[in-house]
Write a protein that binds this DNA or RNA. Sequence first.
DNA 1: ATAAAATGACTGACCAGTCAGTCATAATTC
DNA 2: GAATTATGACTGACTGGTCAGTCATTTTAT
Lengths: 244, 244
Amino acid sequence: MAAKPGKAKPGKTKADKARTPQGRKAVAGAARAAVLRRAGDGSTPNSRQARGAGRREAILAAALDEFSERGFEAARLDDVAKRAGIAKGTIYLYFRDKDTLFQELLRAMLVPIIGGIEAMGQADLPMKQLAERLRDIFIKEIFETKRKDVIRLMIAEGRRFPKLAEIYYREVLSRIFEALGAVLKRAAARGEAPEGLAEFPQLIAAPGLVAIVWTGLFGELAPLDVRKMMQTHIDILFSSRGKS
Amino acid sequence: MAAKPGKAKPGKTKADKARTPQGRKAVAGAARAAVLRRAGDGSTPNSRQARGAGRREAILAAALDEFSERGFEAARLDDVAKRAGIAKGTIYLYFRDKDTLFQELLRAMLVPIIGGIEAMGQADLPMKQLAERLRDIFIKEIFETKRKDVIRLMIAEGRRFPKLAEIYYREVLSRIFEALGAVLKRAAARGEAPEGLAEFPQLIAAPGLVAIVWTGLFGELAPLDVRKMMQTHIDILFSSRGKS
DNA sequence: ATAAAATGACTGACCAGTCAGTCATAATTC
DNA sequence: GAATTATGACTGACTGGTCAGTCATTTTAT
């Protein structure tokens, strides 16, 4: 958060040229070649656009790793650049500043979550099976991917990005919980879900939150069998005598 | 860096006196007077000792506010000092560095939690009542106090302070969950708690975690009736047909 | 040849931690 | 008990290092 442009005047440039360090040129050139090879290694005789798109992806991926390893404040953009195999300045061709990079990262990772889940509200499965499928999706699509790190980031830093929290709530959570609430209400009418649960869909999601927070803090210290925990939870909520 | 007097020797003092900057003296004096007035404003004709004790407290209180408002990295010790009504240097008389201050703060706030809870394992109440009492303790002693902010801090920053996470796990969580597990096992034997729950006491605590995280992120946006949510949870876990 | 993209040295703000100096209080002396 | 000296809690200007963001220059694509 420092913006003190000042604006250097154009004009005196000629005089400076002599100062350019030469020794470095060769080295830098080599490193650069490697980078470019990497960027284009897929196959396409990389057009500008293709490369540009790739860059964005690379930056976001690197940023995710750095941010989730050190947190927003402690993460250094130099490291993000290094990890992405580019120079720091390049980041600024794709993102206005550190804040923007962070927010676009979370937004891009979090919003797509609804897709899969919202659709599920439609299928009219028995509640327990639906819950089990939900659990599988959670484990496969969130817990075992980097999305869990994104959620961790949201939890850890969300407070200082209220706009981000709002987006996440509006575009993701409120929709998921609304769908869940509807499903739960129907299930309760059929006697497949406890009364009152529909009002607090958070209680369905709670073990997921526990899983993410616990493994983040005590993962090595005291591993948690997440699938089993969630199964236990489901059995308690949706069947007096669970089958499996 | 310069001379290293450690305690100026008596003798040459006279000569130096002239060098003392004057312009500052008056200003500094005034500021100081204000500080001292504030420090002693309670009533005690502040003795050295009494003041010293108060300072530590004041620093910890200020640090809690700053840390939980901005996070560990972004919090500035100058602001902590300002909030505590002291100078930055003073912090270093009581804490080695920023890390230490942070860790001692969390440790001091978190460890005492066990006291109340562990005792409860003894009383042999019906499970549901025990759960309700637990919920009341949580709401009164954690959720409605600054301890919830401390837990939030632990969640947000704990990953980068593994030693702290370990202490928290060993000295607090493992004990609480062990006690809870035992209670749940007995309750299950009496038919008052679902089988399997004893293995995952985290499931009892889950709504508490939800409460803390939710209110931190979406508190203003979508308030959550924490007590009601927890009651719903208890009713589902511990009675087929809840009474209230 | 020209434009667009990328680079990385550089700048300036920022902040943890230091330390020489101050001064209220305590200890000692007369 | 008044005057003198010693103590150490407290201060805040300062240092050294860090890092977000800029921009003149170089590289690449067309």
